[in-house]
Design a protein around this nucleic acid. Structure first.
Length: 469
RNA sequence: GGCGCGAUAGCCAAGUGGUUAGGCACGGGUCUGCAAAACCUGUUACACCGGUUCAAUUCCGGUUCGCGCCUCCA
């Protein structure tokens, strides 16, 4: 089966055909660095990470760009409230963002352009729009995009402009627009902007939000590129605005495939600070969960499906990961130092094939994981029966490593117990021989405190990492 | 009001015109000093009403319920 994605533009599944045969160019809407990102944001970033890994799995060289929005209403408001410069205010949140994505096992994109580093590119793009007659200045020195000059406007979000009426949500200060749906390309400086301003052909001001994505994506990926992603909520107006301003400026198709992930809700309700169900990654780490566990929970539901985040789901993720970890541990043990067999054993080949087919089908993660777990079951069954050859185990390990290039879940860290744990384990072996069960159990409890679970097997006692530690 | 999405066993969640998805949880068993892990095993579902069909959870129509977007929220 060919690699297929659901394209929001056509509302249908389409075979992926990159512009350049072997390269996939991808733009992913990134964070606004006015606060710590929340788990809803990370749902999108984990989806995008899965996408880039899947593309690589299929053999494409990926060039991914993720923007950092470090100038907008919220960052300006935040910096002023904190009495800091915009840069000083956003810097820690940028750092935190990278720490967080590392904890979630999200691969680094090739480029993380910050909006404030690309104002000249944005100004140049706005000028192009002016030259083409697609933009106009208002009296205060702002510049707006004239949507009447772009016939396809609203196509992505399936918005019928005739149904749009200026309502309560149209801000009062936007009376200078010719049409209620016109959007700002450049915003003239106002009191609340403080010292956040750039010189432009239209006077002092700052860029609108949408223009940064067009300017930066085209700078790094070209005027037409393969994939653009974001949350559903960005479909309209943000992505429609991007299409309008980019295509109006270049006269070319902007993006071939648009992909949008559904929202995350918490306990069935929209996540919001007032409901007290608002979580950042840091909140979950404090509760003893790992980034890897959250990654699993965020990834295990198909990206176009609303994801209901619960702590039960996190606990289930922990248990599922424990099963995977244990399987890998046993495989390693069985493989020993054996060289991998030339051919995968049948069950492992099936596991790989099922996984690949599912991923190719619009990133069907449930199907992919099901295939992995079927492999786990079969492998465990063989090992329990003593029927798995070391060379086959080694080959299966390699195969799982390859699949993990997509999943990014199988902690390959081989934890070695410290000296204290090793000593306790040795002592326990001795007292068990003497049938001193009380002391034996005492040691097991102590090892648990150190983060280890004891497994007594015919081949001796083993230490296994406790979940969540 | 407009546009769109969803309803699958205790929970989460794929998928399919007729054949065991998977994970978590739970019960019984094997193994174990007891555990843990693993294996064996049990509970087997597709909101409701019509229609098409030899056959529908899967296609079509309708109903109910839930959700999202409709101007800067991933």
């Amino acid at each position: 089966m060919a690699l297929t994605f659901y394209n929001t533009l056509s509302r249908s599944l389409e075979e992926f055909k990159p512009l350049s045969g072997s390269e996939a160019r991808l733009y992913t809407c990134g964070p606004t660095v006015y606060d710590f990102a929340h788990i809803g944001n990370f749902r999108a970033y984990v989806f995008e990470d899965l996408l880039r890994r899947a593309l690589r799995f299929e053999g494409y060289r990926v060039i991914q760009v993720m923007n950092l929005t470090d100038v907008d209403d919220k960052t300006i408001r935040g910096s002023r409230a904190a009495g800091k410069s915009l840069r000083d205010y956003t810097e820690p949140f940028k750092r935190a963002f990278f720490e967080d994505i590392d904890a979630l096992g999200i691969e680094r994109a090739e480029h993380y352009p910050a909006a404030t580093d690309h104002v000249p590119e944005m100004i140049a793009l706005i000028r192009r729009l002016e030259e083409r007659g697609a933009a106009y200045r208002s009296d205060d020195g702002s510049v707006y995009f004239n949507i009447s000059k772009f016939p396809g406007y609203g196509r992505l979000g399936h918005i019928d402009l005739s149904g749009l009426k200026p309502g309560a949500r149209v801000a009062q200060d936007e009376y200078m627009k010719e049409n209620a749906a016109d959007f700002a390309l450049w915003k003239a400086w106002c009191e609340e902007d403080g010292d956040v301003a750039w010189d432009s052909p239209w006077g002092r001001g700052r860029p609108g939000w949408h223009i940064e994505c067009s300017a930066m994506s085209m700078k790094y990926l070209g005027e037409t590129f393969d994939l653009h992603t974001g949350g559903m909520d960005n479909m309209f107006p943000h992505h429609d605005d991007e299409i309008a301003q980019s295509e109006a400026a270049t006269g070319k198709r902007f993006v071939n495939v648009w992909m949008h992930c559904a929202h995350l809700v918490v306990d069935g309700r929209k996540m919001s600070k007032s409901l007290g169900n608002f979580y950042s990654l840091r909140d979950l780490l404090k509760r003893g969960y790992s980034g890897r566990e959250l990654r699993y929970a965020l990834m295990a539901v198909h990206y176009r499906q609303a994801l209901n985040f619960t702590f039960e789901a996190l606990d289930a993720a922990r248990a599922a990961l424990g099963r995977l970890d244990e399987f890998l541990r046993r495989l390693r043990e069985t493989a020993g130092n054996a060289l991998p067999a030339a051919a995968l054993p049948g069950w492992a080949a099936e596991c790989r094939a099922g996984f690949a087919a599912a991923i190719r089908n619009d990133l069907n993660i449930s199907g992919a994981l099901a295939s992995v777990f079927n492999g786990v079951h079969e492998g465990n069954r063989l090992m329990a029966a003593g029927g798995l050859a070391p060379a086959d185990a080694a080959a299966a390990l390699d195969m799982l490593g390859e699949l993990d290039g997509v999943l990014g879940l199988l902690a390959v860290r081989e934890d070695r117990p410290g000296a204290e744990a090793e000593a306790l384990l040795a002592e326990r072996a001795a007292v068990r021989k003497a049938k001193n069960w009380a002391r034996s159990d005492e040691i097991r409890v102590r090892l648990g405190e150190l983060g280890w679970v004891v497994q007594d097997t015919p081949g001796g006692s083993k230490l296994v990492r406790k979940a969540g530690t």
